[in-house]
Write a protein that binds this DNA or RNA. Structure first.
Lengths: 127, 127
DNA sequence: CTTAAAAATAGGAATCATTACTATTATGGG
DNA sequence: CCCATAATAGTAATGATTCCTATTTTTAAG
């Protein structure tokens, strides 16, 4: 149960911290192999999940069906370009008030919300 | 290209209209087989996708990794119970204003948003 | 430093939802 | 009634992710 250091986990987290485009496990794998040629894909998956579970990274799910990972664990929102698929961080205040709106006619306990936006990104709009 | 009637598609849509719990393709398959014993799972998937594409039903994605389907095509929000997994419709106004909030410091074009809520449903809170 | 228990790994097999393929059947306009 | 085409059943393939196991690493304790 106690967590032990592993160089692979370190390399995975270090790589993720250099990126702000929320890569998938496979992208992490491809890149980390440069520095650690015989790391296995299973190890990448296992460590990404582990890091997400202990809150050191964030797992993101949009509608492409693959998990994305983000070293920025602060609560923030994302925009997904429906043309190029790019995922962009949005600078905006928390939308916590929408949970109050949702709770007004609901008898359960609302503890969180998942929100992301989609449309055409700046680059794609030019072409 | 022209759409032709199929009894299987009709049965699938009819079944979906009787449910308000947003079943998965597999659940649709299991139930539709009562009325149409040798329908194939592929047919269920193909028709659910087709119906979603032409806007007759809605495809919903939460974080369980499986697609859910909803015969109610009006824009509305959902609550996912993290204990029992139940998905519940929420009666609340549209949150379109959050797209304006998101667009304030963003140079692309925001066309839509995906939002759902999670927590503990009323039934689960009692136990 | 040595040892040993626990954790982690590499590599590959297994799983699960979903899509693709293909020979056959159903639909519907002329 | 015909026939072009859409749709189907059944099955194979795909792709992301998880699981399994023998081996290697880590680390706390002597």
């Amino acid at each position: 149960m106690a967590l032990k250091y592993s160089r692979q986990r370190q390399v995975i987290k270090d790589f993720l911290m250099t990126r702000k485009d929320h890569p998938t496990a496979d992208t992490v794998y491809m890149n980390v192999r440069n520095e650690y040629p015989n790391i296995s894909l299973g190890t990448v998956y296992r460590n990404l999940s582990l890091l997400a579970d202990i809150g050191e990274i964030q797992r993101l799910r949009f509608d492409d069906g693959v998990d994305h990972f983000d070293a920025d664990t602060s609560a923030h929102y994302h925009f997904v370009c429906t043309r190029c698929g790019r995922i962009i961080d949005l600078k905006m205040d928390s939308l916590d008030h929408i949970m109050d709106l949702a709770g007004r006619s609901f008898d359960g306990e609302i503890r969180g919300h998942v929100t992301y936006f989609h449309g055409i990104c700046g680059d794609c709009r030019e072409s």
